[in-house]
Design a protein around this nucleic acid. Structure first.
Length: 277
DNA sequence: CGATCTACCTGATGGC
DNA sequence: TGCCATCAGGTAGATC
């Protein structure tokens, strides 16, 4: 599932593939892809524009254009952006096509249709995407130190995993990386944030920065369902470095006792009951 | 404030 | 082999 490392990998690919390119044709298919405004506006506004940048905020991608507008993309659970030759057959559940002036075609594919595209006109700021204004610190660009984490978490009565998943506190962490970060910090997923000591917050700070940076260096995690691949269809490599996610029943990398699955907020969580406190 | 539940959706998987 | 139930999970919103 695309979380920060996967979205950042796609962003870097997009930056290389799109910046300086002109969008010469746009096609949309399906009613759910553009749902915050008239889809025709996205087509009319992005067509003819030249891409000037590719940014990421949390798990959101922002493709900037030369008129100051931006195409905002969220992949949610199963969304993919892929670069193709126009002659390539379309994958099932392809919902958007962008023809570029270098002969390539950017496609948006999303079986579960949770993902979406939003056109944000120049000067519109966050009116159409108000959640962007509420995003918390970025653990890749601006990893929070112990002091910052204390400000963010210390006054809240949240289970650690719940806090890590809150996009308005730290932006970009999902189910995979929250488990990996909690394990790397040797903290239980249900450890109350207001009970974390300075030493534990320092461990959390280091774990967060390290796990996210490593995952980005490995171009993200691709699970067996292959829902995440990069712009060119290549899987990431960080799944081979997962310590706990998807490894319930297997030995803890630290103490060799079996890793345990727990339910947390309708989500599965894996960890070591012995090593994580 | 925080916890819990629901909705959105398809595909993979497991049990029978 | 087929059918059904379950699970996977990012986010918003409702409700307690």
């Amino acid at each position: 599932m695309p979380e920060l490392p996967e979205v950042e990998t796609v962003r870097r690919d997009l930056e290389h593939a799109l910046v300086g390119r002109r969008i010469i044709e746009v096609r949309l298919h399906g009613a759910r892809t553009v749902r915050r405004h008239d889809p025709a506006e996205l087509v009319a506004s992005s067509k003819g524009r030249t891409v000037t940048g590719a940014r990421r905020r949390g798990k959101y991608l922002l493709v900037d254009t030369d008129d100051g507008g931006a195409l905002v993309i969220h992949l949610r659970m199963s969304g993919q952006l892929r670069l193709h030759s126009p002659a390539d057959p379309a994958a099932a559940h392809t919902h958007a096509w962008f023809d570029l002036d270098d002969g390539h075609q950017l496609r948006f594919v999303d079986p579960r249709t949770f993902g979406e595209l939003v056109w944000v006109p120049s000067g519109a700021n966050d009116r159409r995407t108000p959640e962007l204004a509420r995003l918390g610190v970025d653990p890749l660009r601006d990893p929070p130190d112990e002091r910052r984490l204390r400000e963010l978490l210390g006054s809240r009565r949240l289970p650690l995993k719940g806090a890590l998943l809150r996009q308005d506190l730290v932006a970009g962490i999902g189910n995979i990386y929250s488990d990996e970060i909690a394990f790397a910090a040797r903290l239980r997923h249900d450890h109350r944030t207001d009970a974390l000591t300075r030493r534990q917050l320092a461990a959390l700070s280091e774990a967060m920065a390290q796990v996210i940076a490593d995952a980005v260096a490995h171009r993200g995690s691709s699970l067996s369902d292959a829902q995440y691949v990069d712009l060119f269809g290549r899987p990431g490599g960080f799944q081979h470095h997962h310590q706990v996610y998807g490894r319930a029943g297997q030995p803890c990398p630290c103490c060799r006792r079996p890793l345990v699955r727990a339910a947390f907020a309708q989500r599965s969580t894996v960890g070591c009951r012995h090593c994580q406190r």
